[in-house]
């Protein structure tokens, strides 16, 4: 393009061209570059949110195996505790198995005659209020014997070693003038029991299932 000869006109044309360039740059900037940049920023933000979600999901997925292993271990421990340490019932009766267990330990400890009375499950008012949150309550029996102190120590040792959850809820030892070698003893033994009797069956089934799985995996191995 040839610029006019006249100096004044030439300056005017140059100014017009510059203004035109500025206008074009303004339009390009506002209609093109800025929206594109903003769009990119928004997309980056969205991408970062999605990436966070994916990372969290991956973490959750990774934890599933741990949860499964943890659950398997817990169920196994609960099933073992239910079968071995929580007092089993016989058609809803807890006294018979308790008396049977005590009879065995009394004989092993050299204690002679004894009597066992069921004291029933302990129902604390506050436990009843929150029974939905609780799964275990206590069942106690009262044992009356006449024996030497050392026999009682042996009995208590075996009772507590036999079951880590059982405890003595009461104990009274009185010396007898007529029989110094034998003391009159009354003691209460407390077991945890499931509040829901169906829990015994649930955990028995769980233990049986676990045992079957273990034996089949051994066979496969």
């Amino acid at each position: 393009m040839k610029l006019p000869e006249d100096k004044k006109q030439r300056v005017q044309v140059i100014i017009l061209i510059c203004m035109g360039i500025v206008a074009v740059l303004y339009v390009v900037l506002h209609a093109g570059i800025i929206p594109v940049t903003k769009g990119l920023e928004n997309r980056k933000k969205k991408l970062s949110i999605v990436e966070d979600k994916i990372e969290k999901a991956n973490r959750d997925i990774m934890q599933t195996k741990r949860h499964k292993a943890q659950n398997t271990e817990l169920e196994s421990e609960l099933a073992n505790a239910s079968m071995a340490h929580l007092l089993q019932h016989e058609v809803g009766n807890f006294l018979l198995p308790a008396a049977h267990h005590i009879q065995k330990l009394v004989e092993e400890s050299g204690i002679g005659e004894h009597s066992v009375h069921g004291m029933g499950p302990l129902r604390l008012r506050q436990w009843n209020k929150r029974k939905n949150e609780r799964t275990v309550m206590s069942y106690s029996v009262r044992v009356t014997v006449e024996c030497a102190y050392s026999n009682l120590v042996l009995f208590a040792d075996r009772m507590l070693a036999d079951n880590p959850y059982v405890s003595f809820s009461g104990l009274s030892i009185s010396a007898q003038k007529t029989q110094p070698e034998k003391h009159k003893m009354v003691f209460d033994i407390r077991w945890p029991i499931w509040i829901d009797l169906d829990a015994y069956d649930t955990y028995s089934r769980m233990a049986a299932k676990r045992a079957a799985e273990e034996s089949s995996s051994e066979e496969d191995g």
Binding site: L74, T135, V136, V153, A156, L160, V166, S167, L171, P192
Partner: peptide, 19 residues
């Protein structure tokens, strides 16, 4: 299961060894 296990375990951890 963890809550049930904790509840049972407290029977063991809080008992007094009378023997």
């Amino acid at each position: 299961n963890q809550a049930v296990w904790d509840e049972i375990e407290r029977w063991r951890t809080t008992r007094t060894d009378v023997a």
